[in-house]
């Protein structure tokens, strides 16, 4: 069984972002970049399935600049077998390659690689769209299991437990399928140094986006990107009584 895991290079989730002064976007120069956290969970799950003998090959794919090779190597160090980078110089966070275009590119790669299922993060932490997996499912006509917190792979089907508002829903998906990961699916491992060194020698195919014959021009024009309004500074209270007094008499949010 073969799994395709799409991943994305994004700003590290611990980095405080800065909006560019000209309001055209977020400053990504000289900031730490990482594997998108939800994609890391997808890679981990694929590796665990491989360790359990449920799958034979894990292919990671990414769309981005040549630097995205770093994140593909990270995924390979975690246990993926090989990587594909669809290289573009367009932005991949805002005003560039959008989820619909990404889904179209992934569809081409799926048709080329014939995986049994696609396992990917539910959203990237840059543009926060939460669309690509659902769109890929629609374009392929495959079963869809979003926001997975548990996955059980059988011969021809996958049982997926989904994190939904107010509880958890379990679905049976016919393979092939597209599954997107939620936080509690697993806790990703740290790659060992020896695996990081070995990963540098694994196969990484680079495809230019221009060879794919897809219209990737953005449908959403970025008019501006601004900082959100800041909150007023508050005060410290010295004890519980003062807190209750403030909440009742000053803020008037308790009666």
């Amino acid at each position: 069984m073969k799994i395709l895991v799409p991943i994305k290079r994004v700003i590290d989730y611990n980095v405080k972002i800065h909006v560019k002064a000209d309001e055209t976007g977020v400053d990504l120069a000289n900031v730490k970049m990482s594997l998108n956290p939800f994609d890391e969970i997808a890679v981990e799950e694929a590796v665990r399935l491989k360790e359990a003998g449920k799958t034979s090959e894990i292919i990671v794919v990414s769309i981005g600049s040549e630097k995205a090779q770093e994140q593909i190597r990270t995924a390979i160090a975690m246990g993926a077998d090989r990587g594909i980078l669809v290289q573009t110089d367009d932005p991949i966070d805002l005003g560039g390659i959008e989820p619909l275009a990404v889904a179209k590119i992934l569809k081409i790669l799926v048709e080329k690689e014939n995986p049994d299922f696609v396992l990917m993060g539910k959203q990237s932490i840059d543009d926060d769209s939460n669309q690509t997996g659902q769109m890929l499912s629609a374009l392929l006509g495959w079963a869809q299991g979003t926001f997975a917190s548990a996955i059980e792979v059988n011969n021809k089907s996958i049982i997926v437990t989904r994190e939904i508002d107010g509880g958890r829903e379990t679905l049976k998906l016919k393979m092939p399928a597209v599954i997107t990961t939620d936080l509690r699916l697993n806790e990703p491992r740290y790659a060992k140094l020896s695996d990081i060194i070995k990963a540098k020698k694994k196969e990484l195919e680079i495809i230019s986006i221009n060879t794919l014959d897809i219209d990737c021009s953005p449908r959403l024009k970025i008019i501006k990107v601004t900082e959100p309004p800041a909150r007023q500074n508050g005060i410290k209270v010295s004890n519980v009584d003062e807190l209750i007094d403030k909440l009742k008499n000053e803020a008037k949010v308790l009666s």
């Binding site: 989820p99 619909l100 769209s129 939460n130 669309q131 659902q134 769109m135 939904i164 508002d165």
Partner: peptide
């Protein structure tokens, strides 16, 4: 919500529309 996030992008792709999220 998890309901809307689950279904609407699927419909958007069927229509060749780039959804605007959230």
């Amino acid at each position: 919500s998890t309901f809307g996030k689950n279904i609407l992008p699927h419909a958007a792709a069927l229509l060749d529309v780039q959804q605007i999220s959230d």
